[in-house]
Amino acid sequence: MQQILFYILALLAIAFSIATITSRNAMYSVLSLVATFFALAGFYLMLNAEFVAFVHIIVYAGAIMVLFLFVVMMLNLNQSPVNIPRPLLARLAAVVAGGIFGLTLVAALSQTILPTSAESTALAEVGSVRTLGKMLFNEFLLPFELTSVLFIATMVGVVVLTKKEE
């Protein structure tokens, strides 16, 4: 059952991501990307990473994509020439380059010896809120605190950037 679920989700993720980069309308792109993210959240659940899955939905689908949507609507670029695709040759080049990129990565994978799986008993705990919380506030306390500095800086930066000049 899970096997079938995995391949269906994988198919959906790939299809939506292709839709994201190909659709002429930026609005559809955003919505396709949201769908892709939901598929990804499905994988996270499958991997016993429930907390990551929920945070993923909340942060990406809920916050980041809303921001995208907002900007797309604000700029209202549906009729803009920006949606006219590049010349065929450029498109072909882009696809070939990306394809070779993926092939190289897969080739790299084929040469990699993957480690064997850990004890199954430990796995249930790995993705739990308790484990993640302990880790985040012990080993990764300093980076965690630093992210708040990053956010402050970002907020200030965004405000300064978008503020209309007097």
Partner: peptide
């Protein structure tokens, strides 16, 4: 992208 491709290719192939 092409640069990264080259680096990867060099590393793994």
């Amino acid at each position: 992208a092409f640069g990264i491709l080259l680096l990867l290719a060099f590393q793994f192939l």
